[in-house]
Design a protein around this nucleic acid. Structure first.
Lengths: 216, 216
DNA sequence: CACAGATTCGACACGGTGTCGACAGAGCCA
DNA sequence: TGGCTCTGTCGACACCGTGTCGAATCTGTG
């Protein structure tokens, strides 16, 4: 069996074990045995458990990048449809690879590298979202309110957490079948919905000016 | 020095170390030394590092319970003010004890007990929120939309994550000074804002009926 | 055949955890 | 005073998972 195959074997073992139990219950030994080698031979292919996870994660990041390129840009035609499409893509991805997601969340606590990769991924998503919200506001389709970037961060973090809770089977969590609808609903109201509270809105606008002048 | 004092000493050491570095970089030895005892003496007071964290966490849970008792119930008078007040309380708490929050999030991956305590805390918050949203809808102050409980879960998880990101200094995160405003803004629009998308709203309502009949 | 590179393995050292039995001081009673 | 128990403290040990290293083996090539 070639080195390349062995490497893939390790990755496959990792993905399948991660579907069964959390990262900290999987030892390098488990990975090595699963791929049919001794623990020390494992280190010939990967420097650590963490690097295996990073490989697994890289694939999914790659996926996401491709998808971003193909994402619809014509938000004006059908905003709910486009947003749903975008959210649905991450939902599908993380629901299909929930083991990797769970492990990533777990490893973020200990590995700066995992933190960085995940942060970049999320950051890109936030950037896209913030730009889209801004565009909708300029177009007059969305009302002013929470600063676009802050809103985008909140919404993206919400998704992350909701997916994570789903992947980990945590309590409380949204039922899996209802997750996408709930998220799309919250995004649409948070972005396009205006509240009937002028005072609160004014406060947010003040805040917005403040944060603008702070940036300047 | 009495046993009680020693115990408090350990807790104080833990809280102060957690303000400096993450849980996994703090060993039982560090805790023991900090409190002026040997590692094995530590085990006389606590069964593990995890139990120390649980003690720290219990205090804050206690706080939260007291606050829930005193929380304003007259949502109708000034919705934005009441919501802001409620969110502000957790914001203050977790921003003052961010080390404990960060450690809790970290320990949740490995400790079922931490998971459970946190789940209960969050669960209570979700219940309150869902009940309040329902009441606002019945009253006619909030439009129908995402099922109240799902919406509550999404919003609570969003808060958790945004606080966590703040506590961990993660990227991307909302600037600390803008956090509360952003969250209140998203909550208000998500709960009270109606979207101008009838089709999407209908879809959510359909989904809602479905999930109801599933529950029945 | 001999050699180089690739691959595997057993043995080791390290660091953190949790347990155990020995021991010391304090208070109490005879 | 001696002996007892309860509370704390400690050093030593066993355990587990990690990562390293050098020796052994295997494989293809000149």
């Amino acid at each position: 069996m070639s080195a390349d195959e062995r490497e893939r074997e390790i990755l496959a073992t990792a993905e399948s074990l991660l579907a069964q139990r959390p990262l900290h219950e999987i030892s390098v030994d488990d990975l090595a045995c699963g791929a049919g080698l001794s623990r020390s031979a494992f280190y010939f292919y990967f420097a650590s458990k963490e690097q295996v996870l990073l490989s697994l994660l890289d694939r999914l990041v790659e996926d996401q990048l491709i998808e971003e390129r193909d994402a619809p840009r014509n938000l004006a035609d059908d905003p709910p449809g486009v947003w749903r499409h975008v959210l649905s893509a991450s939902f599908e991805r993380w629901s299909a690879h929930r083991g990797v997601l769970r492990a990533t969340m777990e490893a973020r606590a200990t590995s700066a590298q995992v933190r960085e990769v995940w942060g970049r991924l999320l950051g890109r998503f936030v950037d896209r979202t913030a730009a889209a919200i801004d565009a909708e506001r300029v177009r007059g389709a969305a009302p002013a309110g929470v600063p676009a970037r802050d809103l985008a961060i909140c919404l993206c973090l919400m998704n992350e957490k909701v997916f994570e809770a789903m992947a980990a089977g945590a309590q409380p969590a949204v039922a899996e079948a209802a997750t996408l609808d709930a998220l799309v609903g919250v995004w649409l109201t948070a972005i396009y919905g205006a509240t009937p509270f002028p005072a609160a809105a004014a406060q947010v606008v003040r805040q917005r000016r403040l944060s603008r002048s702070r940036h300047a």
